[in-house]
Design a protein around this nucleic acid. Sequence first.
DNA 1: TCTTGCCCTGTACTCAGGTATCGGGTTCAC
DNA 2: GTGAACCCGATACCTGAGTACAGGGCAAGA
Lengths: 148, 148
Amino acid sequence: MRTGELARNAGVNLQTIRFYEREGLLPRPSRTASGYRSYQQSDLERVRFIRRNQQLGFTLAEIKQLVQLHGVLASMGPKRFRRRPDELQGIIEIGRERLVAIKEKSRMLNAMRRQLEWLLRQLESATVVTCPTRSLEKRSSKCPQKSS
Amino acid sequence: MRTGELARNAGVNLQTIRFYEREGLLPRPSRTASGYRSYQQSDLERVRFIRRNQQLGFTLAEIKQLVQLHGVLASMGPKRFRRRPDELQGIIEIGRERLVAIKEKSRMLNAMRRQLEWLLRQLESATVVTCPTRSLEKRSSKCPQKSS
DNA sequence: TCTTGCCCTGTACTCAGGTATCGGGTTCAC
DNA sequence: GTGAACCCGATACCTGAGTACAGGGCAAGA
């Protein structure tokens, strides 16, 4: 897959792909003889991963760490590449902190959802109450239009 | 409460408060005789609301709509301020869309949490496997330090 | 072979969301 | 009645995250 195709598949701008590469969020891909970037399926997944994380309010710097976290496991692979245990501990620590952040976001999101649901119920019932036609069935949230 | 105090309580920069006012995210507050802004508790809550939403990846434009959504209900208050039902319908529509967005974020967040938890389990067990000391109890995720 | 549509690097620009600074007025504890 | 700590509006600046453009190279069908 070349840059344009990757960008299209991931729903981002072509420049964004190159930007992510410069920023170290995407690995430098292999190149064709003429210098064109050549991407794998895993790169597409990574771009999508990045975007999902952004939508949840993580910065690119945080996402980069997360991506590295995933990379560590891959690099240990079946060969059990040996790392200094304290280095690994640091990496694990980052992961744990990120997990805490995720749980916190989850909590906030749930609170917001409940609040918004309550608000919508209020507004929907208000629509019924203030509806210009006198009397409507109780559970109808739809108000007949005045004209047209 | 004056600007500086509000900013401190909300954990944001003083300029940010003024910026939010300019952007219509905070209402223009009442002023003291000498022109100082005077804020209520509800303003503090609103600033916190804004920040929480930002941390979840909503833009200020989106948050502004949400804030207006809340404002509508308050403006109808106990007096049942009459609004054109189609206007209200539009507002409700925005709320519903936001709710869908929240649910989607929730879904993504849960998926990410599961993935990260799995990853951490892998790394923790890897720590044990590659630990320099030969034999450790199976479920220990703590690796004795080399020195110091 | 030429034209159309890709791709390359490098540099410059944009936009959201703040932050800082300037020159001045206010408050209040001492 | 003065100095420290605060506030005002206006304006300029900064950072993160892209996005566009210029000037040129490759690929492939007509």
